[in-house]
């Protein structure tokens, strides 16, 4: 019996501390309706992917520079889940005061809706896009043992070809399924969890082909362990100038990953201008340019309005493509 009050007191104190901490946090992110005082406390940059991936790295590169210009800390908050849909829905529901931003992937708007149900799909109209950032290209690589050195080798092989993708509802899957249909080649789609295991499977000859992001594939391309057959961008990639595009080879399947900074819909113009200026300062810095080069990212620093039109165009194009070839991205049943 002697222990009882003791235990309670501690529990009470502990929960009081927790409550205090929680309310303190609430104050920091809650205020700030007066846009002239922007930024009012830290500006959270939410990322829908786990730390360490390319989206996360870009967010960190942006926040590092922009925080200095804004004069407020810009912590990167990782909230992975459902391809980034979880983070998007959360940020879209935050007050439109510029204190909560999202680093958004194009595939979430253009490709994922083709694979998931209507209510899981993210709508770009729920956001004000501040600025476009960069383009991350997909490259189709072939294993050594497959003997494929060009896309011609694949189309003339006259047999079933196995190809790895980085998962269901990704650009990697869309690009390859459409390519195979257009080239009239039979293929088996083998989904992996992300780019790394797909690349490993090509290296180990478990699958013959895979489409992954250039930054991930480059070390193995340079080492001659995998052969690049084509890139899916509209123009040749400056880091891989000798590899033809899908378009040059006669296939209409332009796929790349684009990224942009977004704020909840209805953010005041003044706030958006301040944010844009701060981010543009970063984009101009040598450190950021070096970062892009190191990660094989092609700058695509277009305006928010352009981002919206382009992404909507891609979404419509992909929808038409999968309908035309009656592809179901969720179709491995």
């Amino acid at each position: 019996m002697m222990h009882f009050p003791n235990r309670r007191a501690i529990l009470g104190a502990a929960s009081a501390i927790t409550l205090l901490a929680l309310t303190a946090c609430g104050n920091v992110s809650g205020g700030g309706s007066d846009s002239s005082k922007y930024p009012n406390g830290p500006v959270n940059l939410t990322v829908g992917q786990a730390p360490g991936g390319s989206t996360d790295l870009i967010a960190r590169a942006i926040s590092e520079g922009a925080a200095k210009t804004l004069g407020a800390p810009m912590p990167v908050v990782n909230k992975p889940g459902a391809n980034g849909a979880l983070a998007s829905k959360e940020v879209a529901g935050k007050p439109a005061d510029g204190q909560n931003l999202l680093l958004i992937n194009a595939s979430l708007i253009t490709i994922t809706p083709l694979a998931v149900t209507q209510d899981e799909a993210v709508n770009i109209d729920d956001f004000d896009i501040i600025t476009g950032l960069s383009q991350d290209d997909y490259v189709l690589v072939a294993s050594e043992k497959s003997g494929f050195k060009s896309i011609k080798d694949v189309t003339s092989a006259g047999r079933n070809v196995t190809y790895g993708t980085t998962g269901v509802g990704t650009g990697s899957q869309l690009a390859q399924t459409v390519l195979f249909k257009q080239a009239n080649v039979k293929g088996t789609d083998v989904p992996f969890d992300s780019g790394k295991p797909a690349l490993t499977a090509v290296l180990g000859n478990q699958v013959e082909l895979a489409t992954i992001q250039l930054g991930e594939a480059m070390p193995q391309i340079e080492a001659g362990k995998v052969s690049p057959l084509l890139v899916f961008s509209e123009e040749r990639n400056s880091f891989l100038p000798d590899t033809p595009t899908a378009k040059e080879s006669g296939y209409d399947v332009p796929v790349a990953q684009y990224r942009a900074v977004a704020a909840p819909k209805g953010t005041p113009q003044e706030v958006k201008d301040k944010l844009l200026a701060a981010i543009q300062d970063t984009l101009k810095s040598d450190a950021y340019k070096e970062f892009n080069k190191k990660n094989m990212l092609t700058p695509k620093e277009i305006s928010g309005a352009e981002v919206v039109t382009q992404w909507k165009d891609y979404a419509a194009k992909y929808k038409a493509l999968v309908e035309k070839y009656s592809i179901s991205l969720a179709g491995n049943k």
């Binding site: 979880l86 829905k89 694979a115 899981e120």
Partner: peptide, 20 residues
């Protein structure tokens, strides 16, 4: 979570948190 081969949701009861 989401079936990584078909994108079908399994035992998620419509929760996005359980999608992965």
């Amino acid at each position: 979570g989401r079936d990584i081969f078909t994108g079908e949701n399994r035992f998620t009861f419509g929760s996005l948190e359980l999608a992965d």
